[in-house]
Design a protein around this nucleic acid. Structure first.
Lengths: 250, 250
DNA sequence: CGGGATCTTGAGAAGTTTCAATACTTGTGG
DNA sequence: CCACAAGTATTGAAACTTCTCAAGATCCCG
C-alpha cells in the first residue's frame, strides 16, 4: 500500500524550494543543504493575525517566510504600536534577537503564512564547520543592517510622498524577485500599518496615495496597487539625483 | 641590548586593551585572543577629517575604534550628506559592507582617532574553529540591527525634542560604559552633523538645545554638555510611558 | 444584509523648515 | 598676541508640511 502524503502538510524541503536562491547561500553543497534541512521545522501555517513570536519572548529560532507576509512591531505599554518591518517570502525574521536572547519585536502574520523555523543553536553548530553557511548568515545580517540604515535616511530626510514611493518601489522589487509582477500587487498590510511604518498618519497616507494617482504614477484599488510609471516613481523615491538607495530586504 | 618600544606606536594588544570587554566575546580563551591579536592591524592614528574608508570602496576589513570618534555618512552626487552614525571607542564599523562587498558609507574621523583594523577574510577563517568568536560576530551584528531599528522608530515617531533627548541619553550611556562621566561630556560632532543624523535643521537643533536648557535638563557650552537631570531626560527620551528602548550601540 | 473596521476628505492647529540677518568660535598668520 | 577670516551657532518671522479632529463613505467578513 503506497504511503499517502497528507494534503495539508506536504513534505517540503530546501532542495526543491522555489525560494532557495533567496534563503540559501549559493555555494552550499547538497550534503550541507540536507543537514540544514534536517534542523528546519515547518510548523503548520499561521492564520491571519496569529503571532510568530512575541516581544520579550525567548529567542530560540529564526524564521524564513515561505508564503504569506509578516509584520514586526513593538507594542508599548500604553497601547501604541510601532511597526518596524514587513517581511515577504524568502526573507528572514528574528536576527535582531540574537544578542539579547529575546525578541525585541512581536511578529504577526498579515495573511495566512507558512514559515521555516530554524532553531538557532542548531544553526550555530551547523555553521561552525561550514564556511559557506557562516558567511551566509553574516551576509544576511549585513544586508539587513544596510537596509535599516537606508530606511533610516529615507524616513528622516524624505517627504511623505517620497517615503511612500520608496516602499512601493521596494515592494515592487521584492515581489519581482519572487517571480511575481513588479507592476501589479496586493499590499499585505493596511494603510494604517504602512503609515505607522513610515511615520505617517493614515490620513496622510490617503492623501499621498491620491496625489500619486493624480501624477499618474500609481493606480490603487483598495490594497491592489498598479505601478503606472515605474521610472518616474523610482526617480521620486530616489530623490531626483539618482541616489544609490539599495531598497528591499532581499 | 634591550629592545626599545617606539613612543608613537607603542605595542598595543587585545589582552591588555581597556576596551576588550566591549570588543571581545566574554569567553574567548587566551590562545584565541592571541590569534585574533595576530590578524589585527593598528594603523597610525587618523587626523580629524581623515577618511577611514569611502562609500563604494572595496570591503576588506572591519574597524574597532580605539580612541577618538568616527561618523559614517552617505554622500550624494548633488553634494548632500546623510549622516548615518557616530561611533565611539569600543564600537565596530563596517559590518554593513559584508554583503555587497563594498562600503555603503564613508567613515571619517571626527577627531584624532586610532582604530584596530580587522581584515575580514582572516576574521572569517579564524571564527570557523571558534564558536565564541563566531557567536560574538553574530551578536555584534544583531545588536547593531536592533539599535538601528530602535533608532528608526525614534526618528519616525518622536518629536525633535525627544530625538535630541534620545541621542544625549545614548551618548551619556556610551561614555559611561567607557569609564567616562555620563553627566559631562564633549560632543565629538557639530550641531549640524547631529541635526543631520536626527533629520533636523541646524536651526532646530539650536532651538531644542535652548528649550532643554530652559527645562533645566541640560546645560551646554558649545560642544560641552552637562546633563542636569538624567531621570527627567530619560523620561523625555523614552516618551513618558517607560518605553523599553535599548539605546546605544554598546 | 448588517456592522465593525478601514479608508477618505476637509479645515484648523502644531511642529519644523527655510530664509535672512546677526553673533559667536576657532584656527591662522601677521 | 591680536586681528581676521571662515566656519559654526543663534535668533526671528514667514512658509510649508504633516497632524489632529471630526465627519462621512466604503469595504469586507460573517
Amino acid at each position: 500500500m503506497p504511503q499517502v502524503t497528507p494534503l495539508r502538510q506536504q513534505r517540503t524541503n530546501c532542495s526543491d524550494c522555489r525560494l532557495a536562491t533567496l534563503c540559501l547561500p549559493e555555494n552550499l553543497d547538497d550534503v550541507a543543504v540536507n543537514d540544514l534541512d534536517g534542523i528546519i521545522k515547518r510548523p503548520r501555517p499561521l492564520d491571519r493575525g496569529a503571532p510568530l513570536f512575541h516581544s520579550g519572548g525567548d529567542f530560540r529560532a529564526i524564521y524564513a517566510i515561505r508564503t504569506g507576509a509578516v509584520k514586526t512591531s513593538r507594542l508599548l505599554p500604553n497601547g501604541d504600536e510601532f511597526v518596524s518591518g514587513f517581511y515577504l517570502p524568502g526573507e528572514v525574521i528574528g536576527l535582531d534577537a540574537i544578542n539579547y536572547n529575546n525578541h525585541p519585536t512581536t511578529a504577526v502574520a498579515l495573511e495566512t503564512t507558512s514559515v521555516c523555523e530554524v532553531p538557532f543553536s542548531d544553526l550555530e553548530k551547523l555553521s561552525l564547520n561550514r564556511p559557506a553557511l557562516q558567511r551566509h548568515m553574516m551576509r544576511i545580517m549585513s544586508r539587513e543592517l544596510a537596509t535599516e540604515q537606508t530606511l533610516n535616511q529615507v524616513l528622516v530626510h524624505r517627504s511623505a510622498e517620497q517615503r511612500l514611493a520608496v516602499v512601493l518601489v521596494s515592494l515592487s522589487d521584492r515581489f519581482g524577485n519572487r517571480g511575481l509582477s513588479p507592476k501589479r500587487f496586493r499590499l499585505p498590510m493596511s494603510r494604517h500599518e504602512l503609515g505607522n511604518y513610515l511615520g505617517l498618519a493614515p490620513e496622510t497616507m490617503s492623501r499621498i496615495f491620491r496625489r500619486l494617482e493624480k501624477q499618474e504614477l500609481v493606480c490603487t484599488d483598495g490594497r491592489d496597487i498598479t505601478l503606472l510609471n515605474q521610472t518616474e516613481l523610482r526617480l521620486l523615491a530616489h530623490g531626483e539625483s539618482e541616489v544609490p538607495l539599495r531598497s528591499g530586504r532581499a
